[in-house]
Design a protein around this nucleic acid. Structure first.
Lengths: 184, 184
DNA sequence: TATTGTTATACTCTATAACTATA
DNA sequence: TATAGTTATAGAGTATAACAATA
């Protein structure tokens, strides 16, 4: 049997034996779901005090970049609805982590910029998340971690081992003019 | 930067560049999320005609086992609320895939059994999912697939390479008296 | 009194639609 | 007319609570 790990509410799904299924030797869905949920859960814990949680953190990182910073750009980049972005920014701004500034080039738009507090907060959060990644990899030794990350990256990017590592940068650039769900 | 892939609505999240983030070499969260979402999405597609989708499929597999079959057992095993299980079974029974039978040992309880149609349907669905697993692994060659599955399993089960493979069976057995979220 | 299963209700999160102010 | 952002509303999915039947 093959276990499908889906539970819509991934963030809160029990972590112990959900769909502990029927004892198959290699059940990709089960393992993938278990590891992913563990990562999500630990991340959410590490980012509990950030307005909007992991989503809020993503907004901070994107706002800290030098590329585009308008609300709609952020929403597209993070794959969230622009109405959701409004709420996220409301919370982040209320906590003094970001600011909405008028876009001199377009009076309809707002530019999102990190405040000083936002910048220092972001740095600290990145440290926390590095710890989470480290924990998730669990008992793997150094060489195994490298191997796993490499294989996972290749799967995620659908790249061949020969390719000069086609990282997310190139992909993101490629899709700069974002659109929802570009099929699979 | 480290990207946290969380979006609560994992099943429907865009797959292309969500949180395509800031071009880090190895971003575990991003890769994990991307692969997991791809798996979930493809599974959902493969199981679209099953009442309850992936969840319904899980109920079928568990019902097809010889261990416990009462509604509450199924709910615990799959990590869903018992009220959700009621709706799930309503749909599956309406389609003639499972039956609710009175438990001779406890007149409060109902035993869930697969119908003949449910059994044949289940077999076919497993075939579809094997295909999904195969697709998700993408460009990896055979040896790499084995390596990846092995590492992922070890991470998921937190087992050491030396351990006589401590698979989900032993874990499930261990937790037979299920409880929510066994910490992490 | 506790437990199985059902039903009804409330809550959370997300998307849809309508609105404003610009372009 | 189209777009950026906001707000209000409705929808899907889940959990909570109350209930009936049985232990």
């Amino acid at each position: 049997m093959i276990s499908v790990m889906t539970s819509p509410a991934v963030d809160v799904a029990p972590e112990g034996l959900p769909a502990a299924g029927p004892c198959v030797e290699d059940d990709l869905g089960w393992a993938l779901g278990t590891v992913f949920r563990r990562y999500v859960k630990n991340s959410a814990t590490a980012l509990a005090d950030v307005p909007g949680g992991p989503r809020g953190y993503q907004v901070l990182t994107t706002a800290g970049m030098d590329t585009p910073k308008r609300q709609l750009d952020l929403a597209n980049r993070l794959g969230v609805d622009r109405t959701v972005m409004t709420y996220l920014l409301d919370d982040l701004e209320r906590d003094g982590l970001v600011e909405r500034q008028p876009d001199p080039a377009d009076r309809r738009a707002r530019l999102i910029v990190l405040t000083d507090k936002g910048t220092t907060t972001l740095a600290e959060l990145e440290g926390r998340l590095a710890g989470v990644e480290n924990d998730v990899l669990g008992t793997l030794d150094q060489a195994e971690r490298v191997a796993f990350r490499s294989l996972l990256q290749r799967i995620a990017t659908n790249s061949d081992p020969l390719d000069h590592p086609r990282d997310k940068c190139s992909i993101a650039d490629e899709l700069t003019g974002n659109k929802d769900s570009q099929g699979q």
